[in-house]
Write a protein that binds this DNA or RNA. Sequence first.
DNA 1: AATGGTGATGTTATAACATAACAACCTGAA
DNA 2: TTCAGGTTGTTATGTTATAACATCACCATT
Lengths: 162, 162
Amino acid sequence: MTDTSHSAVNGFVQHDHTHCVSDALSRADALCAERKVQFTPVRRRVLEILLETHKALGAYEVLERLAAERLGSKPPVAYRALSFLVEQGFAHRIEGLNAFVACTHPEQDHAPAFMICRSCNKVTEASGKGDGSFGSIATETGFVIEQTVIEAQGLCPNCVEA
Amino acid sequence: MTDTSHSAVNGFVQHDHTHCVSDALSRADALCAERKVQFTPVRRRVLEILLETHKALGAYEVLERLAAERLGSKPPVAYRALSFLVEQGFAHRIEGLNAFVACTHPEQDHAPAFMICRSCNKVTEASGKGDGSFGSIATETGFVIEQTVIEAQGLCPNCVEA
DNA sequence: AATGGTGATGTTATAACATAACAACCTGAA
DNA sequence: TTCAGGTTGTTATGTTATAACATCACCATT
């Protein structure tokens, strides 16, 4: 699970994963500084944990790893760090799995769409135009969209073969 | 919460709600007969409960009402009926709320999209083309979509005013 | 009528996910 | 120093969901 070619963005797409992780962390560093919020050890480590796999991890899975490293052992520790990351746009919650993934382009404010492989559990974020699905219908009916959840489950290219 | 004009389809759109409920129930009756599955009292009643409001109800809310009517009091009773309804396409699970709504057009196989009002909790199902958001990107990457979750949260026309 | 299969329901227990509430701590400003 | 704000530690509990097994009702066959 440690691929080291480089091409595209995330998930089940081949990419230089080491850079992917360290880049994301430094971008988060920068954004936190800019926003004057604290990127504490727990928060940083949780983001790193999410980045290590491109899988969706449940809060309790994250917590297990934190506990192993003595960074916290009670649910609120994990949930607090995860909420922080989600608030800052460094991670997203996957509703369909009650789980979380690192965001692959945290700088832009985005309405993300996800493709979730039910076999290997990896998640790819399709950037951009999440609410394309709603734009017209929402304005027709007068519904004011505040947030969208757009998730596809299925099989990723790698798992389709197998 | 008992409107009796008639026009469109569901949710926060005005419609003849009495017919809406009874129609949906008879269509479910018919479909169950056709499919040779049992539309038992609990299942029927749960669908009716969902139809009564266009709100998303949690399993335990449904269960409360069942219990009040001596139709069952333990979680599995509600969850089983709800799974049945979802399998048959008579209801949908709203991932963003851990809750369930009656489906407004159960005959067609559909990839539904929902607009969920965070104020009044009503849900409108935008029929049809759910996976529009994914079609191209999924085929480009070779991801095989099996199911989509498309949900917008926000304010419905009625609640925007208030 | 007895038998046995199938699908539905009843029930117990527990798993998995999530948060309220309060205490302790740390850091930086007044 | 003292205070305020934000973060973390901890307890306890709330909420959502399912596994596993017992029972029942119905129908078909013997």
